[in-house]
Simulated assay, not measured.
Amino acid sequence: MPDSDTGAPPKVVLVTAAALAVALAVAVAVFALTQPSADSASDPLPLVPVPAPAAGSPACTTLLAAVPTELTSNGKAVKVRALANPAPPATVAWGEQDPLVLRCGLDRPPELTPTASLRLVNGVQWLQVPGDGASTWYVVDREVYAALTVPDSAGTGPLQQLSDTVAAKLPARPLRFS
């Protein structure tokens, strides 16, 4: 109902329309800010360096040169992802959200003891170290220690695929506990 003096809509209608317009603008802005950018998959992945005294070893060079450019994680193909500089040495990552990360040349994991539970996958012995939402699997029967960190949702595909690569490129060695 127009204002009898000016013919304009009542103030309550104007205030309501303005409030709805502001609420819509805020909702659109929040949605845009919370969605991953279209190129987030191509953004380099920042990783924290960890001690890797044998990262420059010939065994790590051989292994990293042979890793697949694509892994199957939970039935989906995940591709190698660029690492942000400074990138940790002897490290490869796959995937966008919850990436898989392989590091080579690490120190012996302290969890590796004579009574540790190991899993044999395609001829490679792995030690699982569970974490919060992810596990790190250490290759423990080769010249160098390598670790694959995978989200709990990844399934066994990446471990199987990388076991094939490790078995093909690095000869097995007896376990070392010290």
Score class of each variant (00 low, 15 high):
A55Y: 03
A41T: 12
P51H: 04
E70V: 09
N85Y: 12
S37A: 15
S73I: 04
C104D: 00
Q97H: 15
T91P: 07
D98S: 15
L106R: 00
A21L: 07
A21K: 08
V80R: 13
L63F: 05
E111G: 14
V30D: 10
A93R: 10
A19G: 11
W94P: 03
S40F: 01
L33T: 05
A55V: 12
R81S: 14
L33N: 05
V15D: 10
N74K: 04
L47R: 02
P49E: 06
A27N: 03
L47K: 13
A41V: 14
P110G: 00
V78S: 11
Q35R: 15
S42C: 08
V67A: 05
A29V: 14
G75Y: 06
L45W: 01
L83F: 06
G105Q: 02
P9M: 12
S37T: 11
L83A: 09
S40V: 11
V80D: 05
K76I: 08
S57F: 03
S40T: 13
L102D: 02
A38W: 07
V67Q: 02
C104S: 00
A54D: 14
E111P: 12
L71C: 00
P53G: 15
S40P: 04
A21W: 05
V50Q: 15
T34I: 09
P88K: 08
V28Q: 10
L63Y: 06
P53M: 13
V48S: 14
V92F: 02
G95T: 00
S37W: 00
L47D: 08
V15P: 09
T61K: 07
A17R: 15
Q97S: 15
E70M: 03
A27L: 07
C60M: 02
A82R: 14
G105M: 04
V28H: 07
P110L: 01
P99Y: 04
A59Y: 03
P99R: 04
Q35P: 13
A25S: 14
P51E: 00
P68D: 06
A18I: 08
C60I: 09
A23R: 00
T16V: 15
K11Y: 13
G56H: 01
L71P: 03
G56K: 03
L64H: 05
F31W: 15
L33M: 05
V101M: 01
A38P: 09
W94E: 06
G95R: 01
K79S: 04
R108T: 03
D39G: 10
P9A: 13
A55T: 01
P58N: 13
L47F: 07
L63T: 07
V101H: 05
S73R: 04
D107M: 13
E96S: 14
P109N: 01
L83C: 05
P9T: 14
T62K: 12
C60T: 04
S42R: 11
T61N: 08
V30Y: 07
A59F: 01
T72E: 03
P44H: 12
L20Q: 06
K79G: 13
A29G: 10
P68M: 10
P68C: 11
T91Q: 08
V30E: 08
V92N: 02
L33V: 08
V22Q: 08
V22M: 11
L64F: 05
V78W: 05
A17M: 13
D43Q: 07
